[in-house]
């Protein structure tokens, strides 16, 4: 659905996107991850025709954004910064966009209801809260009933309730066959939402894999507490298992809890605690985007 090919975007003093290539499949939720300044926003702005690429290109449904016959009906976009005229009402803002895209005005009230903003529709956007602006952005993205949503950090400024609303909303959108490409630097959010993730760092692709794979790849460890920790440590190492004592007096073992438990039982070593520490997406992410050690 989205193809980014050898995309490079240089600003005067910085290369924001550096020969980046990836594709986003139809009908799934793909997360777009990277630390601050990784080049997510820049990539999305080039994709949406707002910024011009230095080289390479990005296409949606096989076309560049400016070549789309009916852009708002093809892709709905939520940009990072909310861009409103403060003196215009939320409803007027949407009416302008609907007029420009040839979308019937009745649709404006529908999307306002969909994002639960009907009550504030006639108020000036200048008086909206951050969360309300974000909802208005989502409403604008939905105007043309597109199959594809591109969102740049849509959770920014939303409270937990708002974030849950957004998550459910995107899930049900994808559930109806829609494609979602959503950027974030908040990983926990992505692990609960995305099917797969594209991770970039300093404008380059670091990983593109399913969330499940990525989580697996993250180093999972088993935490063990035993009154005979030293015996257990020796025993584990003798068995070729990597393990080290932690500051909390437990052992961190790089093996599944089953193996650790069985081994302790064979040796008759009592265990007071045996916990599988799930590798989190967060850890995998930090590992992938860690600064190279000098």
């Amino acid at each position: 659905m989205i193809e980014v090919e050898h995309l490079t975007k240089r600003f005067r003093h910085a290369t924001a996107v550096d020969d980046l290539s990836f594709s986003v499949p139809r009908g799934r939720i793909t997360g777009f991850l990277g630390p601050n300044g990784a080049g997510k926003t820049t990539t999305l702005r080039v994709l949406l025709g707002l910024a011009l690429p230095t080289s390479g290109h990005a296409t949606l449904a096989g076309r560049r954004y400016r070549e789309l016959a009916a852009p708002l009906r093809t892709v709905g976009a939520v940009l990072e910064a909310s861009n409103y005229h403060p003196a215009r009402s939320g409803r007027s803002h949407l009416r302008v966009l609907a007029a420009a895209a040839g979308i019937p005005q009745a649709r404006v009230d529908q999307v306002l209801a969909e994002v639960e903003l009907s009550g504030a529709a006639k108020r000036k956007v200048g008086g909206y809260s951050l969360g309300m602006r974000q909802r208005l952005s989502v409403a604008a993205a939905l105007l043309g009933e597109p199959e594809l949503l591109v969102l740049d950090e849509p959770a920014n400024g939303l409270d937990p309730e708002g974030i849950r609303w957004l998550r459910n909303f995107l899930r049900s959108f994808a559930g109806r066959g829609g494609t979602v490409f959503v950027s974030s630097h908040v990983l926990g959010e992505m692990s609960q939402l995305a099917d797969e993730v594209v991770i970039i760092h300093r404008g380059k692709l670091v990983a593109h894999q399913s969330v499940a794979e990525l989580t697996l790849q993250a180093t999972g460890a088993t935490r063990v507490r035993s009154p005979r920790a030293e015996d257990l440590l020796a025993r584990l190492r003798a068995g070729g298992i990597d393990a080290e004592p932690t500051e909390a007096g437990t052992l961190a073992v790089h093996a599944p809890p089953e193996r650790v438990g069985d081994l302790a039982a064979e040796a008759g070593i009592p265990l007071h605690e045996l916990v599988a520490e799930k590798g989190s997406l967060e850890e995998a992410f930090l590992e992938l985007t860690a600064e190279p050690q000098p």
């Binding site: 949406l48 025709g49 707002l50 954004y65 400016r66 789309l68 852009p71 708002l72 976009a77 940009l79 910064a81 861009n83 409103y84 005229h85 403060p86 803002h93 966009l97 420009a100 895209a101 604008a140």
Partner: peptide
């Protein structure tokens, strides 16, 4: 210029990308 000042040019270009 008002579109540039308020950033609404972004939304306008999304709706009408042929500048």
């Amino acid at each position: 210029t008002a579109e540039y000042a308020h950033g609404t040019i972004n939304q306008s270009l999304l709706a009408v990308p042929v500048r």
